[in-house]
């Protein structure tokens, strides 16, 4: 049967699972990346760069919310998706959860670049989604994302231009690259196949990864950065064999996370827990309801 995502209540279990998995991948990446970006507030190298990254963080929070909104159709609530969720249920890539190397501005910049290229590609693959609410959101997000890539690339080029900046970028690339590959790892391979079969997204993870590599590899090379463990057998054709050994032990998508994630989770849920909150968006009751 042709699945219709107009009425979430009519969805079969397989469709619900595919939908919720896709949305958690999308929403969790955005949410956790925003959490990390905000650590740079008042610490970035200049006032402008501080505001730019803080603004990108706010964009990502807005996008996380757009995806979580669609999850709410399946019966989730914002609090159960964020503040009351088991940390191991989050499906983000480990790229977004890693702590920044202290004071190393090349880290958020390169991370943003690797992530934003991947995001651009996966949004393209969602433009014709069979789920009307997903398709409805894509263009809005794309229009707000364009600046992110521009921001990351203009900084990459500045950093790569000097010896120290170049060295820092290379160190960060060596450290982040295996984690960036987890962006394309499956939550569960059967469910991932369903996501494509049901037309929720029209590219497989492998296709997205290939496309991503075909964008980032030439760009990084143009800045004289070496991509770790990538064999290029043919000058004209990019031959990148990604094997499991290149991936980190924790892949994020499958619920396995680095210790840093559990620390971050404790930190952002602390106030909610300590104040005994049960609503996410209400600071206080309205005066006339007290």
């Amino acid at each position: 049967m042709a699945a219709t995502f107009e009425n979430p209540a009519d969805l079969e279990e397989r469709e619900q699972m595919a939908l919720s998995t896709l949305l958690k991948r999308l929403g969790d990446d955005e949410f956790v990346l925003a959490e990390r970006y905000t650590e740079w507030q008042v610490r970035a190298p200049s006032l402008e760069s501080d505001l730019a990254l803080a603004n990108n963080a706010q964009d990502e929070l807005g996008h996380a919310r757009l995806w979580y909104d669609v999850l709410e159709d399946l019966g989730f609530k914002e609090r159960s998706l964020v503040f009351e969720r088991e940390p191991s249920d989050f499906r983000h890539s480990t790229l977004v959860e890693l702590p920044f190397e202290e004071g190393n501005w090349a880290d958020p910049i390169l991370r943003s670049y690797l992530y934003d290229v991947a995001e651009e590609l996966r949004l393209e693959a969602l433009e014709d989604s069979t789920h009307p609410k997903i398709a409805d959101r894509v263009r809005k997000i794309q229009s707000e994302e364009r600046y992110h890539l521009e921001h990351a690339q203009s900084w990459m080029e500045r950093l790569a231009d000097g010896d120290e900046g170049h060295e820092r970028l290379q160190d960060v690339l060596d450290r982040l690259f295996p984690h960036a590959l987890t962006l394309f790892e499956p939550v569960d391979s059967d469910v991932e196949a369903d996501i494509v079969d049901l037309g929720l997204r029209d590219a497989t993870l492998e296709e997205l990864r290939e496309e991503w590599l075909s964008v980032i590899v030439p760009y990084l090379e143009s800045l004289d950065l070496e991509i770790p463990e990538i064999d290029q057998t043919d000058d004209d054709k990019l031959e990148v064999a990604v094997d499991q050994e290149m991936l980190p032990d924790e892949r994020g998508r499958d619920g396995g996370h680095t210790d840093a994630w559990f620390d971050l989770y404790d930190e952002f849920t602390r106030t909610y827990r300590e104040l005994g909150r049960s609503e996410t968006t209400k600071i206080m009751e309205k005066p006339n309801e007290q």
Partner: peptide
């Protein structure tokens, strides 16, 4: 106007 609008609710 903006997806991250803090005044949404």
């Amino acid at each position: 106007t903006y997806s991250g609008c803090p005044a949404r609710d």
